[in-house]
Nucleic acid binder design. Structure first.
Lengths: 218, 218
DNA sequence: ATATGTGAATGGGTTCACAGCT
DNA sequence: AGCTGTGAACCCATTCACATAT
């Protein structure tokens, strides 16, 4: 157990994975050991224990962790015991797929507004939402208590859009554009970029061997 | 410069990012310094230089790196100077969005076959492709020289699908399902999981401070 | 003056190994 | 016996600092 600000970032990024496995286990068993949890993710038991120990002492020697309890703790730690409102910018093909994506809601994330710079798109529907002009962003962020922005515009527009999101009050940004924007420090950015994963994969595939390394979840 | 099998995985995962920035720079300048390249990605110049130095000596003291040359080298190193054929499993909403995704082709990745376990979907069209039954997977992988599988099925079916992909000959898997499958060692798996990124973001957003850390591309 | 390439130093993250609880 | 929690040891990755080249 340790001060919040000195928890390794690597640990924080694993917590959602633990939560995910626990969701599956919830239905079938009451307790889980660090070994079992680690097996699901290709991790060593010691790592699981140490990761969790940054936040508290959730286990019982000789028994393991109570699945339900641990899941609840993790959701609390990650800030998932509330709903997070998000705004999407860019309602092209990809944007539409994002609005329709069924994976957000069960985890407490909701797209509650969407914006596009193109006048032809403004006013049309995207899922249940009406596409708004960029100018309304600041206003809408306040009204709807939005803290996260999703960016699904072409790479060459992404920087400008992200600047606008930050100005509107976004503190976190999920960037689907294949580029690396500059943001003020304090703004969190994460990247969804399937091609990038493929490209680091082909390095290994190309060298017929070089295969020995663990297929872990990084 | 060093043997292929002892290049840090972390370095390999950054190479696609360098390539991406170089693509942008290509149009506007002939050379780039490690400082400038690093600035684009929120990295220190020394890291850029060391990363590249694992593969060769591409720079010139006093000048920097030739953009075009470096990009070509990286594409070669990553195995991107060829086309990679991929197969999609799961032609639901998400699967359809993946087939339609415009980001793969320009980088040399192509979805050349798609499969679904549901008989109602088999035989129907998905983009330009006809949805095939799972049983044809092995055959098609050989015929079409497929090495990468994309998984877009519900979490509870993903393990089974991935087993089938591996049996069919897939050596790399891009998993859109929110779960962590077990695979034989030697098979590469990468995860596209927007929710996971959101969940590690909310940890920081929740603790109003804890913001100091760099918004880098990990 | 400017910028690379790299050995050495530092820092962060993972794993070991064991005391201690059930 | 089985399993956690954790300091210490280890290993991998990043950064520094400087010799070297243009």
């Amino acid at each position: 157990m340790v001060a919040v600000n000195q928890i390794p970032e690597a640990v924080i990024r694993r917590l959602p994975l633990y939560a995910r496995v626990l969701r599956v286990l919830e239905a079938r068993q009451e307790t889980v050991s660090s070994r079992e949890l680690g097996d699901w993710l290709g991790r060593r038991p010691a790592q699981v224990r140490k990761d969790l120990s940054y936040f508290g002492r959730f286990g019982k020697q000789g028994r393991g962790y109570n699945v339900e309890r641990l899941l609840a703790e993790l959701r609390e730690i990650l800030g998932l015991s509330r709903t997070w409102n998000m705004a999407l910018v860019g309602v092209g093909r990809l944007g539409r797929a994002i609005v329709d994506y069924r994976g957000f809601a069960p985890e407490g994330f909701e797209v509650v507004a969407c914006f596009d710079a193109s006048p032809e798109r403004v006013g049309k529907k995207a899922g249940k939402l009406v596409v708004q002009p960029m100018a309304e962003m600041g206003q809408t962020f306040k009204e709807k208590d939005i803290h996260i922005g999703l960016v699904a515009v072409p790479a060459n527009q992404a920087q400008h859009v992200i600047d606008q999101l930050v100005a509107a009050g976004a503190r976190g940004i999920l960037n689907y554009a294949p580029m690396a924007p500059k943001v003020p420090s304090g703004i969190l950015v994460r990247y969804v970029d399937p091609v990038r994963y493929l490209q680091s994969m082909t390095f290994h595939l190309k060298n017929e061997k070089g295969f020995g390394h663990r297929a872990s979840l990084d």
